[in-house]
Simulated scan of single mutants.
Amino acid sequence: MSANVVIIMNDYTKMGGVEKVTSNLSKLFMSSNIKLFGIISLNQEFNEPKIQYPVEMPIFLMSIEEIQKFIQENKITHVIIQTQLLKETVEILKEIKELKVKKFPILHNTPYAYLNYFYEKNNLKGFLKYLKMILVTKQRSMYFFRKIVELSDKFLLVSKKAEIELKSILPIKFHNKISYIYNAQDIQKENNVNFNKENIIVYAGRLAYDKQVFKAIQLLEPILKNNSDWSVEILGDGPEREIIEKFIIDNNINNIFLRGSVDNVFEYLSRSKISFLYSLYEGLPTSMLEASICKNVLIGSSSKGGISDIIENNVNGFIVENDSDFVKKIESLIENDILNTNLRNGNSIVLKKFNNTRILESWEKLFI
Rank of each mutant, 00 (worst) to 15 (best):
M1T: 14
A3Y: 09
A3V: 15
N4I: 04
I7S: 14
I8Q: 07
D11Y: 04
D11G: 04
G16Q: 07
G16S: 06
G17M: 04
V21K: 00
S26T: 08
L28E: 03
S31Y: 03
F37N: 15
G38Y: 05
Q44G: 08
P49L: 03
Y53E: 10
P54F: 08
K69N: 07
F70H: 11
E73I: 11
K75T: 12
T89N: 10
V101D: 13
F104G: 12
L107A: 14
Y112H: 15
A113T: 15
A113Y: 06
Y117K: 14
E120G: 11
K121P: 01
K132R: 09
M133I: 12
V136F: 05
T137C: 00
R140W: 03
Y143T: 05
K147L: 07
L151A: 11
S152L: 14
S152G: 12
F155Q: 12
A162I: 10
I164S: 15
S168C: 07
N176P: 12
K177G: 15
K177S: 15
I178D: 13
A184G: 15
V193S: 05
F195M: 09
K197D: 06
N199W: 03
I200S: 06
I201C: 12
I201Q: 07
V202G: 14
Y203K: 05
D210E: 15
L220R: 08
P222L: 07
S231A: 12
V232C: 10
V232D: 03
L235C: 03
G236T: 10
G236S: 06
I244Q: 01
I244F: 04
D250K: 03
N251C: 01
F257Q: 09
G260M: 11
V265W: 02
I274T: 03
S275C: 13
L289E: 04
E290W: 00
V297I: 08
L298Q: 01
S302E: 14
G317Y: 00
G317C: 03
L333V: 02
L339F: 00
N345H: 05
I349N: 02
V350M: 00
F354C: 08
E361S: 06
E364G: 09
E364A: 09
K365A: 08
